[in-house]
């Protein structure tokens, strides 16, 4: 595996705001890497540093083996970026903007084979995204502005694609188009870093994720390995069974009994230890809810909210924590 993006102890301060607070990110060649975190966690700031648009306060970043701050032009020839909030030139049409951005990146000129390929690809993408390139920039909605940047990025071959919440303005149909285009780009050998605050988007597309909160990576790995960190919810009909044997197991947490049902959470990677005990009890009406990343994710979000809302003492967060019953990994 070859490392495409690596940051070590990256800090970025805006006055007293620590947008990044020791961020270590690593993205391997050929993967779709999800960069997941709540609003304000520092995703856009990270991407802007990776692009050399912003300078890190301290720490190092390398992208495609280059220093983004000092070698940004060379770097930008090899990557494509879609900002979170795309702004267009009001009096340039969408088609003109796409052409301009692609031409700046090169390989789209005139009557060469490359030029023909580019025009073909642009036309295909405009069709797929159901996009009218003939309107002026000021006339596009948020979703259509996003499409301009997406089409410009996907119409040229790049080694690395950086997407900052790319689907925030797209409808579900267009999200599906985006997904298949990203998969096609990875087929071609590209690497993708996709920031998002929506888990489901990352869940369907990404091989690995890094979860960022308050400027640092709080969790990461493949989707499967993350799932193992969460708990499987188990419940069955109480029927007056003696559940003390269960409570003694190390894999079982927060065993409760109410409304005629017994419930507990089991460590997902140790679920096999629990099954014999359940069999011995002869439980009925058994339900086992598989682990979901949502829990893990909400746990990270939830912690942030608890910390932020400590003064208010909102019961909402407490309920989340109880519901998830997850053990902190950090």
């Amino acid at each position: 595996m070859e490392t495409i993006i690596q940051t070590v102890d990256l800090h970025k301060h805006f006055g007293r705001v620590r947008a990044l607070d020791g961020l270590d990110l690593d993205v391997q060649r050929g993967e779709i890497h999800g960069f997941l975190g709540p609003n304000g966690a520092g995703k856009s700031t990270t991407l802007r540093i990776l692009l050399g648009l912003a300078k890190a306060t301290s720490g190092t970043a390398s992208v495609l083996g280059l220093d983004p701050w000092t070698q940004s032009v060379e770097l930008h020839r090899r990557l494509a970026y879609v900002p979170g909030d795309v702004r267009l030139w009001p009096n340039l049409s969408g088609g003109e903007t796409i052409d301009l951005l692609s031409r700046l990146r090169g390989g789209t000129s005139g009557r060469t084979q490359e030029g023909r390929d580019y025009r073909q690809r642009k036309a295909r993408l405009c069709g797929a995204f159901d996009f009218d390139p003939g309107k002026k920039g000021r006339a596009y909605s948020k979703g259509n502005r996003q499409k301009v940047a997406l089409i410009a990025a996907l119409a040229t071959d790049a080694e690395l694609y950086l997407f900052d919440e790319p689907t925030s303005g797209l409808d579900p149909l267009m999200e599906a188009v985006f997904r298949s285009e990203v998969l096609a780009a990875v087929e071609r050998g590209a690497t993708v870093l996709l920031s998002s605050h929506i888990l489901s988007e990352v869940e369907v597309l990404c091989h690995r994720v890094s979860i960022i909160r308050a400027g640092r990576i709080v969790d990461g790995g493949t989707l499967d390995s993350l799932r193992h960190l969460t708990r499987t919810e188990v419940s069955f009909a109480a029927n007056g069974l003696d559940t003390r044997a269960l409570a003694g197991l190390g894999a079982v947490h927060e065993l409760t009994s109410d409304g005629g049902r017994v419930r507990f959470g089991a460590d997902s990677d140790r679920i096999a230890e629990v099954l014999p005990a359940l069999g011995a009890l002869g439980v009925q009406g058994l339900t086992i809810t598989p682990p979901s990343l949502e829990e893990l994710f909400l746990r990270h979000y939830g912690d942030a909210s608890v910390a932020a809302g400590a003064a208010g003492g909102e019961p909402e967060h407490a309920r989340h924590r109880h519901l998830l019953g997850a053990r902190g990994r950090d």
């Binding site: 692009l51 648009l53 940004s72 032009v73 060379e74 930008h76 020839r77 970026y81 900002p83 909030d85 795309v86 702004r87 267009l88 030139w89 903007t97 951005l101 700046l104 990146r105 090169g106 940047a149």
Partner: peptide, 12 residues
């Protein structure tokens, strides 16, 4: 924000 589109391309 339009400058960002330009400066994210190979334009110093």
């Amino acid at each position: 924000g339009t400058a960002e589109l330009l400066l994210a391309a190979p334009v110093s």
